[in-house]
Design a protein around this nucleic acid. Structure first.
Length: 840
DNA sequence: CGTTCCCGCCACCCG
DNA sequence: CGGGTGGCGGGAACG
């Protein structure tokens, strides 16, 4: 009916007619699987499995082999889908491929198998859809599904009708960075939080504040109406191909990925994803069918992402039961891009992709009229209108550009060697012989990683920020629930908006800039503040879901986790002696709860200082020639905060549970209890600092060690520690711990095991110290400046410790007059995790 | 039964 | 206007 865009009615009619006329052909229905085949049939799932097993065989692509290696031998099942049938097509027709044989995931694998991950320019990297479709024996329609999501990751790009160019993973890291950034700017983190919150709204029903918050969030939400995110140099190849750039699958795929990138346990449930993706357009019609459709699409996308091994399916268990979700298993994405193009290296800047740089006129055409209204809301229909207009405009714009020399651009050296190396990193890691899950997760690796990072960062001192360090477990053989506990490797990245830094970078020719198509009206909305700068004590998913948890539940959870964990059984036992007592004494949860609740009340979202920080339209030209609205707020914002504001916003405990800045949802004590405690059990080292905070700690302590400086906090390190401990509930609020421990604890944070804690600690500490010595530190921790331009780090240390976002993002701690500690800008992360995440 | 998701109609848009 | 694209949702397969 009217609801349907497509005159489905007709379809339905014709359908029924057809059905009647030709009963044997089922026009609109899924063909029934011809009942039965011999049990021994080669195509049964079982046989499939066998095939797989025997399959680690020769003819699999080298790439495939690598993957296999990385897979735990015991998990053949898991790898099942990873294989392509190895036999010639001879057996095709005789058997009815089971539904699974036709799955998009498998198809995608086949598709991927055709092309190298990192194609060289020399190779023939053209993709002809018809050809592929034929070879893979599927309808073209299916190929579109695959290609579309690949395109969203810039792994392919469309050249012309029926033709695509294969880029493989060369662009992947940049794309992910861009996506992450955009995701942050879209405040996806908060949206997720919000969704979850809403799920069980029933419980907290407080005042209008909530509503306001919701409204605001969703209202401003339309900003996320952004379209396809592009990379410079990856812009439309051919003008003609542009039209549907903002269409669903592609964009949806990008958004989906964004959700992972901004989530701390990088797990996203389908439900949430769907809601967010829908919510962007119109929040009201939470139409069920629409939701269903969205989910369906998400499955499609997820399937190909899975094939790419960027995500994998898991289940999160909430109070409602198991819900399908996906976990990011791709490379860790560092918000800061700068590192990618090491000016350090003799390589210098990669030659600017001159060919692909749009003319100036185009740039001007791209100018978005900025609309100042902050909360301008428009009716959906209007949005649509605008969209189409915008669309047209785009077409026009792109027209002059017309197809560029493919060969030139296709493999344009956008990605310097360094980048490639980086990209390759995960693979290397993956190649490390698979041990046991635990071991993988284990410290040895982490320790190495740490070292590596440390030394690396030392080397990269010229970088204005840490370079991209990829997470070690990308290929996920061991991906278990535990991973959730280690959202980010030490020092790797700030979960936060890289917007800060990246935004600043664009100046650099080779910088990873990205292009977002926004509706003019939305330009202003882009990032007002960084979502990540909020404390996220809990994993959104379960957090939201939990009302009151009793110890039983907690135990249960822990136990469940335990099996895959090193520390098992009674979690308490696995704790270090040191921690143990603390934890116990901790009736903490209760205390925390109360307090948090109390605090929440006071501090709920006072919307903050709007955009005074929007110093100016903050628009700038990127090399790509596209005009991109900067996330000015990000840095401006930070700088903009006055101390009192910070204080107000971030006062101790309160901040932990709800930050006005972030619009975090306040949580109840029970929730905290439920979530935080389990986290402890799971992670021997309970204190898990986010990269941001981690970065902060060293700097701070350092500053206090060396020459003190700007830090207003007498003893920042201890502040951090105390804050953390208190927050986590390890120590009563009143207790204070000396600063030193910080150094020890921080490193430990990355250690899942305690057995070697001491050693590791030692090592890490040494490393750190060493590092410090090296660069003599300049710990400027509370410099609220928002440099407009990329700033070169003064010292290696600084560059290392500074959050990727830039100097201004360095978390600062300060003691408030009231004696409480204040954390500003920084984020202390508590291990966040689902109540339970299970692989399938 | 709930979840997963293949199939293919048909609206759209491009050349 | 024909053909490439790809939104969309029924309902089968799967678990």
């Amino acid at each position: 009916r009217s609801v349907l865009k497509t005159p489905l009615k007709q379809a339905a009619t014709s359908h029924s007619v057809l059905t009647e006329i030709q009963p044997d052909c089922q026009p609109l229905t899924t063909p029934t699987k011809p009942t039965e085949i011999l049990p021994v049939d080669p195509w049964t799932p079982t046989s499939n499995l066998k095939m797989l097993i025997s399959a680690a065989s020769p003819e699999i692509r080298s790439r495939e082999q690598r993957r296999e290696l990385s897979n735990n031998p015991g998990e053949v099942l898991q790898a099942k889908h990873c294989l392509q049938e190895h036999l010639s097509g001879d057996e095709y027709e005789k058997s009815q491929p089971s539904r699974k044989e036709k799955s998009l995931g498998l198809l995608c694998h086949k598709f991927l198998a055709r092309y190298p991950d990192y194609p060289s320019t020399a190779e023939n990297n053209f993709i002809c859809l018809d050809e592929v479709a034929e070879e893979l024996n599927v309808e073209r329609r299916r190929i579109y599904d695959i290609v579309n999501v690949l395109e969203s990751l810039h792994m392919v790009s469309r050249l012309a009708k029926n033709r695509y160019a294969w880029h493989g993973r060369h662009n992947l890291s940049k794309t992910l960075q861009a996506l992450k950034k955009v995701g942050e700017e879209n405040k996806y983190t908060q949206q997720i939080q919000m969704i979850k919150k809403r799920e069980h709204e029933h419980e907290f029903d407080f005042d209008g504040e909530k509503n306001e918050e919701v409204a605001r969030s969703f209202g401003s939400n339309e900003h996320s109406e952004m379209s396809f995110v592009e990379l410079p140099g990856m812009e439309f190849r051919a003008a003609s191909v542009n039209s549907r750039k903002d269409k669903s699958l592609r964009v949806m795929s990008q958004k989906f990925v964004m959700l992972f990138l901004v989530s701390t346990p990088q797990i996203v449930s389908l439900e949430v994803a769907a809601k967010i993706l829908i919510g962007e357009d119109q929040l009201e019609d939470l139409d069920k069918s629409k939701f269903k459709t969205k989910i369906r699409r998400l499955y499609d996308i997820a399937n190909v992402l899975s094939s790419l091994e960027l995500i994998k399916k898991v289940h999160v268990t909430e109070e409602r039961g198991r819900k399908p979700a996906f976990k990011w298993t791709g490379p860790e994405v560092l918000p800061n891009i700068q590192g990618t193009k090491l000016e350090t290296t003799s390589m210098t800047h990669p030659p600017p992709p001159s060919e692909s740089i749009p003319s100036k006129e185009q740039c001007s055409k791209n100018l978005f009229p900025l609309k100042g209204k902050q909360n301008f809301t428009r009716h959906p229909s209007l949005i649509k209108l605008v969209k189409s207009i915008e669309n047209d405009r785009r077409k026009i714009q792109s027209a002059p550009t017309s197809p560029i020399k493919i060969s030139a651009i296709l493999f344009s050296p956008l990605i310097p060697g360094t980048d490639q190396n980086l990209s390759a990193f995960p693979n290397e890691m993956a190649q490390v012989p698979a041990i046991t899950k635990h071991q993988l997760e284990g410290q040895s690796k982490k320790a190495k990683e740490m070292k590596m990072k440390l030394s690396r960062s030392a080397l990269d001192c010229n970088l204005s920020s840490p370079e991209v360090v990829l997470k070690p477990e990308p290929l996920c053989p061991a991906a278990g629930p535990q991973q959730a506990a280690f959202p980010q490797p030490l020092g790797v990245c700030s979960p936060s908006h890289g917007s800060v830094s990246p935004v600043i970078l664009p100046q650099t020719p080779s910088g990873v800039s990205y292009t977002i198509y926004l509706h003019p009206s939305q330009a202003h909305t882009v990032t007002t503040y960084s979502p990540s700068f909020m404390l996220q004590p809990l994993p959104r998913a379960n957090v939201t879901g939990i009302k009151s948890i009793n110890s039983k539940v907690v135990n249960k959870v822990t136990t469940e986790e335990g099996d895959s964990q090193i520390a098992t059984g009674d979690p308490t036992k696995s704790l270090t002696t040191k921690e143990q007592p603390a934890l116990k004494s901790e009736a903490s949860s209760q205390r925390c709860l109360k307090r948090s609740q109390a605090l929440q009340e006071n501090h709920l979202p006072k919307r903050y200082r709007s955009d005074k920080e929007s110093l100016d339209p903050s628009l700038s030209f990127f090399p790509s020639g596209y005009l991109i609205p900067l996330a000015q707020c990000t840095h401006g914002n930070k700088a903009g905060f006055s101390n009192e504001e910070k204080a107000g916003i971030c006062s101790l405990q309160h901040t932990a549970y709800s930050s006005p800045v972030a619009g975090v949802i306040p949580m109840t004590g029970s929730e905290l209890k439920a979530v935080n405690i389990p986290a402890f059990h799971i992670t021997p080292l309970n204190i898990m600092l986010s990269p941001t905070s981690i970065a902060a700690a060293p700097v701070l302590s350092n500053s206090s060690l060396n020459s003190s400086n700007t830090s207003s906090a007498p003893n920042p390190s201890s502040s951090v520690l105390n804050f953390t401990l208190q927050h986590v509930g390890l120590i009563p609020t009143g207790v204070q711990v000396p600063a030193n421990p910080v150094l020890q604890h921080v490193p430990m944070a990355s250690q899942p095991e305690n057995s070697e804690n001491m050693n590791l600690q030692e090592k890490v500490r040494k490393n750190i110290l060493q590092l410090l010595d090296h660069g003599g530190l300049t710990g400027e921790c509370s410099a609220p400046c928002a440099p407009k331009e990329p700033r070169m780090p003064q010292t290696p240390t600084e560059s290392f410790f500074r959050t990727p976002g830039g100097p201004n993002t360095v978390p600062s701690l300060s003691a408030n007059s009231d004696g409480t500690n204040t954390v500003s800008q920084g984020t202390l992360y508590i291990p966040q995790r689902k109540l339970e995440v299970s692989e399938d």
